[in-house]
Each structure stands twice: as structure tokens, then as C-alpha cells.
Amino acid sequence: MPVLFKKNPIDVAFSIITGLASLSVLVFIIGILYVLFTESSPAIEKFGVMKFLTSTDWDPVRESFGAATSLYGTAVATAIALFIAIPVAIGIAVFITEISPDFLKSPIGIAIELLAAIPSIIYGMWGLFVLVPIMADYIEPALQSTLGNVPLIGILFEGTPMGIDLLTAGIILSIMIIPFTASISRDAFNLTPEIVKESAYALGATKWEVVKNVVIPYSKLGVFGGIVLSLGRALGETMAVAFVLGNNHQITTSLLDAAATITVTLANEFTEADSDIYLASLFYLALILFVLSFITLAIAKFFLLKAERKFSR
């Protein structure tokens, strides 16, 4: 349809300008991939792909680098965050859509969205000043004296409670993604047709049964997409965890040990790497992180689009 109007020269120019502007996104993605790849090529040549991904070495003196420790830290911190955030976020979504009286719905919704707008550095700083002492003095010793004695799980809570560790980082990360996950879940829940819910209630279903058997099945694609999207967010979060992780390049079984994530490694070491191979390895980490989160976000988008299409039909 618009093609009809392209006769006008200004119109042609305008369409080209807008087209170029929209292509900028594509240019950034390709540009980031290309630049990160070229910058990291010395490290890629030296360490290869599999060896870099699996090596736990991060040894600037001997110039031997591997991503395994950073990947491990990223994975564990993200896992803890999702473990806490998913049930809470879904609970919040259920509360807003099904339980809360109407006059509360919008204030709570707004409050949750404000929580999502707080910059991550505030979470990080608050974590260091407020949460770390609480973790070190109360929560971690309590965990050690209870869960610490349970066989198998016990090893997760070994070590000294000092608050600067994977567990604290995971908790801060979870606080950060809860509002995000909750608001997507709420939107997904809201897509459930009112009429279907009404029918279920008419059949005598309890509220929980409606949620469990009608709302969740209806919205599971959207909720799942939201969770994966939060996963993607959590993977790439820097400032919220940089304060409390202790940048320790080691794989430890205990959650009470310091660790490193890809993002924290970059934030701490990027401007300071003195040898070329060191810097190249850091670019390599950035490349891995970019690819990893890009794929995760693409999967999330896939599910969200599918969910949308299901309802637009």
C-alpha cells in the first residue's frame, strides 16, 4: 500500500532515512559481534573454543585463561536468583490478577514497576551496605546450623559466613528480577479470557483451581517466555552483583564462597588488563556473554511471540 505514495522525491528520501535508522539495530548487532570477535581473536587462536570454555585457569602471571570459573559463577548466581524469583513473581502475579481488591490492583502494579525501574547499581550498593552484614551475621550462620547439617545439601553451606558470596549475589539478583518477571507474568495472566474464568467459577471451582486449571494453562507460554527473558536479564547483570561477589576465579561447591561472573570479571579487570592476551581473553568473555544472552533472549522472544499469536487468533 505505501508503495503507491513513494513517487514524491522527499517521500523517497524520508523512507530511506527512516529505513537506515531502523537498520541501525542490525548494524549494532553485527558490529558488536564483529568487533568482539576481532578483538578476541588472539585469545581464540591461543586457547581455542572448547578449551577456553572448560578451562578453570584464570592466571594472569602465566597468561593462561579460561572461562569456566566465570561461567560457573554466572550460572550459579542466575540459578539462585531464578529459584527465588520464579515462585515469588508468579505469586505476585496471581495476587494482582485474582486476589487483590480492585482498588489495590493498580497501586501494587505501579509499585512493582517502580521496583523494576530502580537502577541496578542501587541494588548493588544497598546489597553491600545493608544486606551483606545481615547475611553474614544472621542468615548465613542460621543456614549453616540448619541446612548445613543435612547430608548432600550441607556442602552448599560450608565455609565462613562473610556475606560476600554467591548466595548474597543470587538474592540481590532475585530481588532485581522479581518485579520484571512478575509484571510479564501478570500481563500473561491478564490475557486469559474473562469468559473462560467466569465459566469455571460458575461450575463451582475455587479461586486456586481457576488459577491452576484455567489461568496457568492459558498463559503458560507467556509466563515461560517471561521467565526465560528474566534469565537473559540476570545473565548480563553487572552492577547488582559486582559489589558483593568478591571476584574470585575459583569453582567452589559452597554458596558461601566468593566467585566471579563474566560481567563482574569484565567490570573489575577490563580497564586494567596489562598484557594483550589478557585483554583479548576479556573480549572473548564479552563475546561469549553476548552470544549466550542473545540466544537466551531470542528463545524468550520466540515463546512470547507464540503466546501472543495464540491469542490474536
Binding site: D57, W58, D59, P60, V61, N247, N248, H249, A258
Partner: peptide, 10 residues
């Protein structure tokens, strides 16, 4: 300037 530390937090 940076070494592989056996223990500790950074």
C-alpha cells in the same frame, strides 16, 4: 600485578 590466588575474596 594479578596472580592466581589460592584463597580469598577480591
Amino acid at each position: 600485578k594479578a596472580v592466581k590466588w589460592p584463597v580469598g575474596i577480591g
